[in-house]
Design a protein around this nucleic acid. Sequence first.
DNA 1: TACTGTTTTTGAACACGTTCAAAGATGTGT
DNA 2: ACACATCTTTGAACGTGTTCAAAAACAGTA
Lengths: 219, 219
Amino acid sequence: MAAKSAETRKRILEAALELFRRQGFDRTTMREIAQEADVAQGAAYYYFESKEALVMAFYELAAEEMSERIAAALPKAKGIDKRLRSILDVKFEYFAPNRRFLGALFGHAADPQNPLSPFSRETSAIRERDLAHFASALEGSGTAVPKDLAPHLPKLLWLYQMGLILFWIYDRSDEQKRTAQLREKSLGLVVTGLKMISFPLLRPLRKRIVDLIATVEGA
Amino acid sequence: MAAKSAETRKRILEAALELFRRQGFDRTTMREIAQEADVAQGAAYYYFESKEALVMAFYELAAEEMSERIAAALPKAKGIDKRLRSILDVKFEYFAPNRRFLGALFGHAADPQNPLSPFSRETSAIRERDLAHFASALEGSGTAVPKDLAPHLPKLLWLYQMGLILFWIYDRSDEQKRTAQLREKSLGLVVTGLKMISFPLLRPLRKRIVDLIATVEGA
DNA sequence: TACTGTTTTTGAACACGTTCAAAGATGTGT
DNA sequence: ACACATCTTTGAACGTGTTCAAAAACAGTA
């Protein structure tokens, strides 16, 4: 009975997320999750490889749902600033209730070995889809982009957004007001930067930057 | 007998670092460390709050010793590029044998709550001293720096260096060749960037950047 | 229904980092 | 020398994430 199995899996995941939201990732034990989901201690491990895999499952679900919302929102926005903002809006709105435990996902951000890192092999599918959104945000905006920089821009914007989210997660000001400020100011700078980097006068500098990016991206 | 106590502490720390270097942080157990140091299981906890505290102790020792080396190397270098390079040289040389387990220190880099993070309260003393080196590297270089940006520059350079180290830790190319490339190219860009950002024409842009930085740094 | 193979569920057991009460060693004042 | 206090050491025990062999439930076939 495949339906029953899926049902149990869902019950475990929901119990886990509920507890993660209420008391954070670290404070929640696998035993609690099992109890809340009315299964035995080791049951969760039949459906999920590890405690972190539960967060990963959330991340995959979130990516799926946010992807739809972004695809729906993008066509309504024209300029590059508006288009970027609408992507950010979807993400922040979606992540808001889960801010408390998202640190578990982004806390290991710097370690590409960690499965939960946004840079890991395990999250590459999600990352790829996300990159496509930023590519599409650029394409549909009518913004002129230098040919040499163009292939790297989606990833740069993705990185920018990742930095913002990271800042937001650890932003302790009321209602994350500082993140709101940072978002407005940085968005403006991103747009200005995009315009400036196209100036013919800056071509030599741009070449060096592109070369640097290529080095970071690897052979 | 204070000497004996210090001796035991040292023995435990050295056993730990030896094992960390040989088999990494995660693969080393506290029981192994205790055994290697010829003490009981719980003994390490009398001298160190936690397993991570052992890494922190290394970091403090490292900061101390690197600080001396940097202070000795800086006066020999003139230009800002050479001065920055000598700081980087000291760090990479010192960290090289420990690259394997430094991930334990920088893996949680993004999480300022984690004591081991370079952004945490616990590492602030080390960070502060480090910032002073970058400030001194700038001052002694004769590089003209805009007044508004000046107070932020040490931290920016410190961040830049932190990024390089992070890249190095996870650089899987032979002998970390990619990091070497990245270091040369990025150092050049940093110097160019410093010159450019002083152009009067770029003053409005600079103002916005400084404002952004101030937002990130917090009220 | 009875048999067989597969999927799901269970809870005891493991290794780990960590805590802690108790014992032992050392130092100090009389 | 003795008593007392402080510093050091010990190893059992705890809570955690995780593993696993065994049991149970289920599905398909006869």
